[in-house]
Design a protein around this nucleic acid. Structure first.
Length: 193
DNA sequence: ATCATGATAGCCT
DNA sequence: GGCTATCATGATT
């Protein structure tokens, strides 16, 4: 069992945290089930100045509210038919977040296959909507701490090398679409594309 | 490559 | 209350 991350871990610049989350494990534990994966791809959303961020221009609404709170909390939101999971970053009142875009399946792979309608292992968690389905993560995690069960992070194995590039799915975000704020473990086969 | 899906959010009247 | 868009995915052409 990997050791749990403590909340001090989250007090660092968001771009650094986006990289430091690579290699950590995301775990969902319930009474009779452990589902986990190693984070292999993330994206940083930099708040008021980032046109791709929900909190652009400090937009503070019911949905974005949690990003104004302490780092390490879970920000989930619904996108079409999928739930996406982010980790809140930045100091209080600095509404930044890191989106978890892909995992490498670790524990509970058989069960993940059930949740993912018998997809092959290579297609279980290689996208932000897929991984929440595989780990059975829903909107009920909104605002919960990511350093405590049931949905939490643990230390994993550090990546050997990290790559970066433009974020995905934000073509309507002006100049922000080209910022290299997507990070992934170089060569990993579970990245989203 | 395009399209349907369909759950809110956010913004307008 | 209506309208439009969305940090995606799976199925279809």
């Amino acid at each position: 069992m990997k050791s749990t991350i403590n909340k001090e871990f989250f007090y660092k610049p968001t771009l650094q945290l986006a990289k430091d989350l690579l290699g950590c494990h995301l775990v969902h534990i319930t009474d009779d089930l452990v589902l986990s994966g190693r984070i292999v791809e993330t994206e940083a959303y930099m708040g008021p100045g980032d046109r791709a961020a929900h909190s652009f221009q400090n937009r503070r609404t019911k949905r974005t509210e949690i990003m104004f709170h302490e780092p390490g909390l879970i920000y989930t939101y619904q996108m079409h038919t999928h739930t996406l999971i982010n980790i809140v970053c930045g100091e209080i009142d600095s509404p930044e977040a890191v989106l978890i875009r892909a995992l490498e399946p670790i524990e509970g792979i058989e069960k993940m296959m059930e949740f993912r309608k018998n997809q092959p292992i290579s297609n279980l968690t290689n996208g932000p909507g897929k991984l929440t389905k595989a780990l059975n993560i829903t909107m009920s995690s909104y605002g919960k701490p990511s350093w405590l069960p049931p949905v939490y992070l643990t230390e994993g194995t550090k990546p050997e090398h990290i790559s970066s590039g433009p974020r995905i799915g934000i073509d309507n975000s002006g100049e922000a679409k080209d910022y290299p704020w997507r990070f992934w473990i170089t060569g990993n086969r579970f990245i989203s594309r």
